Amino acid sequence: MDERKMRMIIEKVIEKMEEQSSIPVEASGRHVHLSKEHVRQLFGDDRHLSIKKELSQPKQVQYNQRVTLIGPKGIIQGVTLLGPARGNTQIELTKTDALKLGIDPPVRESGDLQGSASLWIAGERGVVLAEESTILAKRHIHMEPADAQRLQVEDRQKVAVRIMTNRPVIFEDVTVRVHENYRLSMHIDYDEANACNYVPGTRGKIISID
């Protein structure tokens, strides 16, 4: 085998090894998870919601319908609505969105809503005040137990991840979330994505574990 072919084979092996040790990264835009009661008030009921597409995490969907967010200083129209319905309405924004709306939501993990910001939400059939509903989503990684074992991490651990783009950034304090129903993916918001020149297909690599 000549040197050129050998070099190509070695490069492909290295590329495969790097892929196996890296994590796909997804940029998450502003979106809303409604409670069943708020679905009823804004759209009638969930029979009036139609699925646009399935998301990377199992059983999570995006609807065709959208909502408007109303804050003290501004509004944002056409906000993505995700499902299925949850026990409590949760709105996830970027800091840029929050400044436009005139609110100051905390950085929180999903579901940690006590003391968070409130917003009005407008839908096809009405308007509701979603109290203690709004957060800046803390960056995190979803993974199955097999992925956690391969990457040598545990549920709830905090890690630092290097985002591998032409403008690489290291994100610290990234929460690992392990569950058998998860699929491997790191989630960052659009502000974070813009900071590192994110493009679809971007991957990250865990470089340290707390």
Rank of each mutant, 00 (worst) to 15 (best):
D155Y: 07
K100T: 13
T89S: 15
Q20H: 03
L101R: 15
L136S: 01
E11M: 06
F43C: 05
T68P: 05
V128Y: 14
T94P: 01
V79C: 06
V39F: 06
M6P: 04
H179Y: 02
Y198L: 03
E19N: 08
L49Y: 06
E3L: 12
G44R: 08
A193R: 03
H187T: 02
L82W: 04
S185E: 15
V39D: 05
L49M: 13
K205W: 01
I9P: 00
P106E: 00
I141N: 01
E124M: 01
S56E: 13
S133N: 06
R183P: 01
V67F: 02
Q114A: 05
F43K: 00
G71T: 08
R47G: 15
A195G: 03
G201S: 02
P105Q: 05
T96Y: 04
S185W: 04
E109A: 07
E3K: 10
R167T: 10
Y198F: 12
E19R: 11
E192L: 03
T94R: 09
R66Q: 13
V107Y: 09
M17N: 05
M186Q: 04
E109L: 13
S21A: 15
A160G: 13
K100S: 15
V61S: 06
T175I: 15
M1A: 14
S116P: 08
V161T: 02
V32K: 09
Q114R: 03
V127D: 03
E144C: 11
K158Q: 02
E37F: 04
E131N: 14
D104M: 11
R4I: 08
L101V: 11
P24F: 01
K5N: 10
G78M: 02
V25R: 08
P168R: 01
G111Q: 07
S35P: 03
R125D: 05
W120H: 07
Q20S: 08
I188G: 02
E54C: 10
I207V: 14
A98Y: 09
V178P: 05
D112Y: 06
D2Q: 07
H38I: 06
S21T: 06
E54F: 13
L49F: 10
A146V: 04
G111P: 10
D155Q: 02
Q60E: 14
I23C: 01
Q57H: 00
M6K: 13
A117I: 00
V67M: 07
K73N: 13
D210P: 09
V128C: 13
G74T: 11
Q77T: 12
E192R: 03
T96R: 15
S50W: 04
A146K: 04
T134M: 03
N181E: 15
L113Q: 07
G71R: 04
M143D: 00
I91P: 12
D191S: 09
H31K: 06
D97V: 14
H48G: 07
I75G: 13
L113N: 11
